[in-house]
Each structure stands twice: as structure tokens, then as C-alpha cells.
């Protein structure tokens, strides 16, 4: 996957041309809308609850904001790229937008928002774009300010693309140090493509973490067990000098492959009595 963070600072990378390209690409729109919907779902606002005020961090052209509007809430968005916001105005989004570097905190009064979402934005904070930038400090300012502008008992769902484990660690510890409770939620952890990181943060205490998609608690444990067993077997086999392998294209092999793909969140036909069955002899 390409990393725009490595090419240029956000306000320069998302210029006039790139913003228009980004906001007219149907694939990007689809992905962004899906992630926006998932983030909104994680906010767990009861369906009867309408007319709240939410914050969209790094709103860009307002694709994720549209999800909020559809759910019947008002939103205010921040983004550093002016060109992206111009596209948002062209798209006539219902929410209000402003130019602001999220690493400088949010220009709002305390306790303003009933929740916050962010789609693919906070990984930009991990990079130092200017000589006076310090990613750790900017993350702290960001999370402190976010904590302040959220009402008590509010949630923030931040989807991001971490580059490595160190970035996840840096972002999560900064958030927890600023008074948030919560943690990281990973959807489809077995897939490389569908895998998505969400930082789920609460301003209040004693809140339940939502469940990730593409995993089941029980299944996960079972799988771990299976792995262990497998390892034991492999070791024993190696000692014997042989290798216990499943024959390719066999029924077991096909079933195993389908199971693996299912875990990756891919679309897989359900098993039937015809799965992996031998075809009759040809005339």
C-alpha cells in the first residue's frame, strides 16, 4: 500500500488536483463510506437518539461526515488541507468545516461534542513535517485537546493506518496517558487487505469495548490451541524425518483453504455436499 505520509505533508500532498482525484474515485469513496459507517456503529449511539453534535477529525471532503448526516446528527470537521475542504464545499456537505492542524489541538470550548470519529487521519501525526514538529508532543496535544472538547461519557473512534507496531504503541499510550480509557480494536486481523485498526476511546470509566469484526473470542482460543497442537505435530514429524501434508486439491485441502479465506473476510461460497467432491468419469 502506498503511504502518502512519506511523500509530502498533508496540506501539500492533498492539493487541488489530488483532492479532486481523491474525492471522485468511486473505490476510495466506497472504502471511506464503509469505514465511516463502521466507526459510527462503534460509537454505539442508540438508534432513537438523534440531533447530537459530533466532531470529524481530518474530515477531508466530508465523505465520513455524510454518514453522520444520514444518521441525523450535526457535525463539525477539521482538516489541514484547504483544497480538500474546498471540495467538501463543492459537494455541499451539511456539516461545517474549518482549517486546523489537529496536532495543535482543537479550537473549541470544553465539553462541546457528544462524540468524535476520524477516518485515516491520525497516522499523519506520527510524522514530523516541519523542523519544530515533535510527533510525541503533537500526539499529546491532540489527545489532551480531544479529551477536553468531548463531553463526559462520550466516545471517540479513530481509524488509522499504522506503519509498524511502534506507531500503534506510541498512539495508544499517548491516548491512555491523556485520561482516556479504551484500547485498540482490529477488524479482520487475519487479512492483510481488510484489516482495519480502530482506536476506541472513552472519556468515562467502566465502558465495554465493542467486539471486532472477523474474529470470535471462542474461535480465537480454539485456533491458538490448534496452532499449538500443530506445532507439536510438526516437531514430532521432523524427528521422524517425514512431513505430514495434506494432498493438494483434496477435500480437506479445499475446506482448509476456504476456511482461511473466510477468516480473511473474503467472500467465500458456503460448504455443501458437492464441496471438493470428485467429478464423474468423462466419456
Amino acid at each position: 500500500m502506498s503511504r502518502p505520509e512519506h511523500i509530502a505533508p498533508p496540506e501539500i500532498f492533498y492539493d487541488d488536483v489530488e483532492s479532486k482525484k481523491y474525492s471522485s474515485n468511486s473505490r476510495i469513496i466506497e472504502i471511506q463510506t464503509k469505514m465511516g459507517e463502521r466507526a459510527y456503529e462503534l460509537l454505539a449511539i442508540p438508534p432513537s437518539c438523534e440531533g447530537l453534535l459530533l466532531l470529524d477529525i481530518g474530515c477531508g471532503s466530508g465523505i465520513s461526515g455524510d454518514v453522520i448526516t444520514d444518521a441525523g446528527h450535526e457535525w463539525i470537521g477539521c482538516d489541514i488541507s484547504k483544497d480538500m475542504l474546498d471540495v467538501a464545499l463543492d459537494r455541499e456537505v451539511e456539516g461545517d468545516v474549518m482549517v486546523r492542524d489537529i496536532g495543535q489541538g482543537f479550537p473549541f470550548r470544553a465539553g462541546t461534542f457528544d462524540g468524535a470519529i476520524s477516518i485515516s487521519a491520525i497516522q499523519w501525526l506520527c510524522n514530523a513535517e516541519k523542523s519544530h514538529h515533535n510527533p510525541r508532543k503533537r500526539l499529546m496535544v491532540f489527545f489532551q485537546s480531544l479529551f477536553n472538547v468531548l463531553a463526559r461519557g462520550a466516545k471517540a473512534i479513530l481509524q488509522f493506518y499504522p506503519e509498524n507496531a511502534a506507531q500503534i504503541e506510541m498512539i495508544t499510550t499517548s491516548a491512555l496517558r491523556c485520561g482516556f480509557s479504551g484500547g485498540l480494536l482490529v477488524d479482520f486481523p487475519n487479512s492483510t487487505k481488510a484489516k482495519k485498526y480502530f482506536l476506541v476511546l472513552f472519556t468515562g470509566q467502566n465502558m465495554l469495548m465493542p467486539k471486532a469484526m472477523g474474529v470470535d473470542g471462542a474461535e480465537e482460543e480454539e485456533e491458538e490451541e490448534r496452532n499449538e497442537v500443530k506445532n507439536v505435530n510438526r516437531r514430532r514429524d521432523r524427528r521422524k524425518g517425514g512431513k505430514a501434508t495434506i494432498v493438494k486439491k483434496s477435500k480437506d485441502w479445499i475446506k482448509g483453504k476456504k476456511e482461511r479465506q473466510r477468516k480473511q473476510g473474503k467472500e467465500v461460497k458456503s460448504d455443501s455436499k458437492f464441496t471438493g467432491r470428485k467429478r464423474g468419469p468423462r466419456f
Binding site: 489541514i80 484547504k82 474546498d86 464545499l89 474549518m98 482549517v99 492542524d101 495543535q104 479550537p107
Partner: peptide, 15 residues
């Protein structure tokens, strides 16, 4: 401008 407030702070205003 154009309905978008510019709230960016300059370098000397942050620290």
C-alpha cells in the same frame, strides 16, 4: 474565506 475559518496557528504561537 469562502465560509471556511482558518484556525491554523503559526509556529511561534504554538510553543
Amino acid at each position: 474565506e469562502k465560509g471556511i475559518p482558518n484556525m491554523l496557528l503559526r509556529e511561534d504561537e504554538i510553543y
